[in-house]
């Protein structure tokens, strides 16, 4: 057991691990979530956050998945994700390469807030917005990155935070030109020379060594 715990610790301490955001374009198909999820669980990788939504292209779904891993593992995972029949494309990006947001909701006793803090100041300082104000409780909403939404939790905790929930990450890739052009490529029976699927080939340099 001890040994296991230690190796787990070592594994988590791998300095090459960092947060990656995986963006997957898929067909809208029942069971696909499971097909993607098992690729992570099979390698015992924890999914930190997962969001599914429509994409910029009608009929194409977009998964946004956040994991902590090394680049080599993320690259292999993306290839295995992309290999699934109903999946069109999988990209992975570091936090620097994306614009990302999460949303959080906070339920606080209205009485507490009215008495002990200035509601307007709170709203302004943390960019929070009151979604519901009732006699017994108030629900605030903020949108931002993890540190920002976490900070508000800290501030509200002394005043009796009744309930807190944070959404999955959604992300826009800075360099992306969207999926419309790529889809045309996929839809044509005869792909052209600059077909997208071979783009890993040109990124060979930093491939892992074992």
């Amino acid at each position: 057991m001890q040994l296991e715990a230690r190796s787990l610790q070592l594994k988590n301490m791998n300095p090459n691990k960092q947060q990656y955001t995986i963006t997957v374009y898929t067909e809208n198909q029942i069971g696909l979530l499971n097909r993607i999820a098992i690729l992570f669980s099979r390698r015992k990788i924890n999914v930190e956050s997962l969001n599914t939504s429509p994409s910029e292209v009608e009929g194409i779904h977009r998964f946004t998945i956040v994991i902590n891993e090394t680049e080599e593992v993320v690259r292999k995972l993306c290839r295995q994700i992309e290999k699934q029949v109903d999946i069109l494309k999988a990209y992975y990006n570091t936090n620097e390469e994306i614009i990302w947001q999460e949303m959080a909701l906070y339920k606080v006793s209205t009485e507490e807030i009215a008495e002990k803090v200035k509601v307007e100041r709170l709203l302004r300082e943390y960019g929070a917005r009151a979604v519901v104000i009732r006699k017994d409780y108030t629900v605030f909403e903020t949108t931002g990155q993890r540190e920002e939404t976490d900070k508000l939790v800290e501030v509200l905790e002394p005043y009796g935070l009744i309930e807190f929930v944070r959404s999955a990450r959604i992300a826009i890739i800075k360099d992306s030109h969207g999926f419309h052009e790529k889809l045309k490529e996929f839809e044509s029976t005869e792909p052209s020379e600059e077909v997208v699927e071979n783009e890993f080939l040109d990124k060979q340099d930093e491939v892992f060594t074992m």
Binding site: T26, I87, L88, L183, P191, E193, E197
Partner: peptide, 17 residues
């Protein structure tokens, strides 16, 4: 069936490689 848009059975052969 001979084409599924989300499925590329064969990668394109790139001559430079």
């Amino acid at each position: 069936c001979s084409h599924i848009r989300s499925y590329r059975p064969k990668p394109i052969v790139r001559k430079e490689y």
